[in-house]
Design a protein around this nucleic acid. Structure first.
Lengths: 141, 141
DNA sequence: TGATACTTGACTATTTTAGTCAGGTTTATA
DNA sequence: TATAAACCTGACTAAAATAGTCAAGTATCA
C-alpha cells in the first residue's frame, strides 16, 4: 500500500509554490532545485495540474507557475485526482453482471474495501494546501 | 494507491475460514474454489499466516486450516503485517543524517505522510475478522 | 500404503513506476 | 528582433514490484 512518487511530488511542488508565488511566478527550475525533483518529471506533473486549473502558467523570461485557486480550496483530493493518483485500494472486477471473484455475488470483503476507500478519501478531502503551508511555517522546517 | 491482491486474498480467505472452521478444518482447496483464488497462491499466503500464528494447520486426510485466535482478536493490522502488506504510503529516504530530498531538513510534506499512515492504520486496527463475518451474515451476501 | 493435504522454494511473464530524452513552441526583454 | 528563459509534448526505457505458476517434496490420517 503505497502512494506513488508522482502524487507525492505534486504535493511537495505545490507546497513549495504556495510559499513563493506571492511575489512572482515560480519557475519549475527553482522548484526542482529546492525540492530535489527532476525538472523533466516536474514538467509532466505541472502539465496535468494546469489542465485541471490548479495552477496557471506564465510564459517568457521571468515566467513560471502561479496557483490558480486559494490554498484553502486546494484539497489533496483534487491534487491526486489531477495526477491520476487513484485511491482505489482494491479493484473489484465489474464483468457484465458478475460480481468480483467471477461469481454472481459480491466478494466477501467488498464492503470492507469500500469503507477503506471512504476512510482514506475523507482524509484527503479535509487536508488543504493551506494546512500544509501553515504546518511548515509553524514548525520552521 | 492500491492494496496488493496478496493482502486482499489473505482477508478474503480468512473470512471464508472464519465462517466454516467451527465444524472441521477447512482445506485450501475449498477456499480456492469458493473464493476464486489460485490454490498455489493460497498456499504461499497461508504459509505466512501460519508463521504468525494466525492459523493452525491440520495435516492428513480431512485436514486443512483452523483459526488460531478468536475472530475478535484478528485485526486487519496483523493480517496485513503477516503477508507483508505494508502501510507505508511514502518511503522517505533515511540516508545517514540526511532527511528526505537529500537535504538536511525533512521534506515539506513529511508530517503529512506520517499523519496519513496513522489515519489508515487506525482503520486497520479497529476492524477485526469478527466485524467482517458479522457484516457478511447480516447482509446475506 | 495410498490419497489427501500441507510445505517450500525457485522461476517468470506482465505491469507499473519513475523517470530520461529529444525536440519542439511561446514570449518578455534587452 | 534576436535570444534566452521557460513552458510543452510525446515517445521511450530500465528497474522494480506483482501475481502468480511450477515442481518436488513431506506428513499424516483412514
Amino acid at each position: 500500500m503505497k502512494l506513488t512518487s508522482k502524487g507525492r511530488y505534486a504535493v511537495m511542488a505545490l507546497v513549495d509554490l504556495a510559499r513563493f508565488d506571492n511575489i512572482s511566478p515560480v519557475s519549475l527550475r527553482d522548484i526542482s532545485l529546492r525540492q530535489g525533483i527532476s525538472l523533466d518529471y516536474l514538467e509532466q506533473i505541472f502539465s496535468k495540474l494546469r489542465k485541471k486549473e490548479i495552477v496557471k502558467s506564465v510564459r517568457g523570461t521571468q515566467g513560471g507557475y502561479v496557483l490558480n485557486k486559494k490554498t484553502k480550496e486546494i484539497k489533496l483530493t483534487i491534487i491526486f485526482d489531477a495526477v491520476d493518483e487513484k485511491v482505489k485500494t482494491v479493484q473489484c472486477k465489474k464483468e457484465s453482471k458478475k460480481g468480483c471473484n467471477g461469481k454472481l455475488t459480491k466478494c466477501v470483503t467488498h464492503n470492507l474495501w469500500d469503507d477503506l476507500d471512504k476512510h482514506i478519501n475523507n482524509f484527503f478531502e479535509q487536508k488543504s494546501l493551506e494546512d500544509l503551508v501553515k504546518n511548515n511555517i509553524e514548525k520552521r522546517i
